[in-house]
Amino acid sequence: MCTEVISIYTLPDENNWNGRIDDTENPLSFRFHQVVRPKSIKELSAFTDKKTFGIIGFKCDEGVRRNGGRIGAAAAPDEIRKQLSKLPYHMEAEIVDAGDVVCEDKELEKAQSELGHYLNKLFAHSYIPIIIGGGHETLYGHYLGVRQFIGANKSLGIINIDAHFDLRTDDTPSSGTMFRQILSEDENAGYLCLGIQKFGNTKQLFAEASKYNCKYVSEEEITQYDRTFQAIDEFSGQYDYVIATLCTDSISSSVAPGVSAPSPVGLDPRVVRTILRYIIEKDNTLSFDLSEVNPLFDIDDQTSKLGAYLLAEVMESFDKKS
């Protein structure tokens, strides 16, 4: 697992980190671009006494293409960085931009393997990985890296905020198959999906969810926070470690038009923010990925901006943990 590494890693682009400067000396006035340090993942510095986030992009459309969706999400890592760059910085943690894994020549499986390889490097240096996709096939590379880091015998729960189960039984891996791949291969993994939509999944996919003992909360039920938080508590309590993933197409297309599969009755971003905070603040939550932002279909960068805001919220929630 994650043993083959190919030459599709690219160095971070310092041009992504620019913005307004209110003060060059006072950290209380800093924005993200004044804090983030672009650095090759092959030259990571030793862990300091501060928490350190390692941002890595996964520039990939291949999983969405295979799944019959509209491509363009490979442009998201840079666009989201540019929007994150401008935001005020409210944390004590350090941030390293560790560059990107790029899917070339439709070699999705190799790109996912390499993403896993580099995530394991981030974990080994005690960095908290923050992954910016790419299509939601990003999650499988995320999973590979976490599994390599924690070992085969530890239990791993995956919490997905999504309108879709992504449990398709297609022979060819895509952005719609990741959870079926994981659950069919890994007896120590479990799956909780929050935001499931009835008309985003066939009856067969609901049957697959039952087959793999997937837990889920529907889009209609998710704002009943007591029940949603209880589902998160019960699920995370069953596993040694948890990872979180957000498919941006779970959010209403009125505020997130630039996604691979727009959702006219999706979630309010405030709901997503509330749930993400709750998941990330769990003691055993290790890492996070955000996927399916598609800048080619965005309007005034509003989906990339939303992605940046949610990434900032996630990092703040990690930063608050002891």
Rank of each mutant, 00 (worst) to 15 (best):
residue 303 T to W: 12
residue 223 T to D: 13
residue 259 V to N: 01
residue 8 I to V: 12
residue 95 I to K: 05
residue 117 H to I: 15
residue 157 G to W: 09
residue 322 S to E: 15
residue 277 R to K: 15
residue 87 L to N: 05
residue 64 V to K: 11
residue 204 Q to K: 13
residue 130 I to T: 10
residue 244 A to C: 15
residue 148 Q to L: 10
residue 38 P to M: 11
residue 240 D to Q: 15
residue 138 T to I: 10
residue 225 Y to I: 07
residue 29 S to Y: 10
residue 164 H to A: 05
residue 27 P to R: 07
residue 138 T to W: 09
residue 29 S to A: 07
residue 108 L to S: 04
residue 127 Y to P: 00
residue 186 D to K: 07
residue 100 D to H: 08
residue 164 H to G: 02
residue 127 Y to L: 15
residue 283 D to S: 09
residue 80 I to H: 02
residue 131 I to G: 00
residue 54 G to P: 00
residue 167 L to T: 05
residue 165 F to V: 09
residue 49 D to E: 14
residue 145 G to H: 04
residue 90 H to Y: 12
residue 197 Q to N: 05
residue 301 D to M: 07
residue 39 K to Y: 02
residue 311 L to G: 01
residue 287 S to H: 03
residue 268 D to T: 03
residue 184 S to Q: 14
residue 202 T to E: 11
residue 81 R to A: 02
residue 217 V to G: 00
residue 36 V to Q: 02
residue 2 C to H: 04
residue 79 E to H: 12
residue 163 A to N: 01
residue 169 T to E: 12
residue 106 K to T: 00
residue 112 Q to A: 10
residue 207 A to N: 14
residue 124 A to I: 03
residue 180 R to N: 09
residue 86 K to M: 10
residue 228 T to I: 09
residue 53 F to R: 06
residue 139 L to R: 02
residue 193 C to N: 12
residue 113 S to E: 15
residue 104 E to P: 00
residue 177 T to K: 08
residue 187 E to N: 03
residue 69 G to T: 13
residue 97 D to C: 01
residue 202 T to S: 15
residue 120 N to H: 15
residue 124 A to V: 06
residue 165 F to T: 03
residue 127 Y to I: 12
residue 63 G to A: 10
residue 187 E to F: 08
residue 285 T to Q: 03
residue 56 I to T: 09
residue 83 Q to Y: 08
residue 128 I to Q: 07
residue 140 Y to Q: 01
residue 287 S to T: 13
residue 125 H to L: 03
residue 151 G to P: 09
residue 73 A to P: 00
residue 87 L to M: 10
residue 61 D to H: 05
residue 318 F to L: 12
residue 102 V to H: 06
residue 245 T to L: 09
residue 265 V to P: 00
residue 191 Y to M: 02
residue 45 S to W: 07
residue 254 S to M: 05
residue 268 D to R: 02
residue 170 D to A: 09
residue 131 I to T: 11
residue 214 C to T: 11
residue 235 F to L: 04
residue 88 P to H: 11
residue 267 L to T: 04
residue 282 K to P: 03
residue 242 V to S: 00
residue 216 Y to G: 01
residue 135 G to S: 10
residue 167 L to K: 06
residue 94 E to L: 10
residue 191 Y to R: 03
residue 106 K to G: 04
residue 86 K to C: 06
residue 300 D to A: 12
residue 18 N to C: 04
residue 53 F to D: 01
residue 75 A to F: 12
residue 35 V to R: 06
residue 285 T to L: 08
residue 92 E to Q: 10
residue 91 M to H: 05
residue 127 Y to W: 11
residue 207 A to H: 13
residue 199 F to D: 09
residue 262 P to N: 06
residue 245 T to E: 14
residue 240 D to K: 03
residue 30 F to E: 02
residue 39 K to E: 08
residue 90 H to R: 11
residue 294 N to C: 13
residue 104 E to Y: 10
residue 284 N to P: 04
residue 143 Y to D: 06
residue 89 Y to F: 15
residue 199 F to S: 00
residue 36 V to I: 15
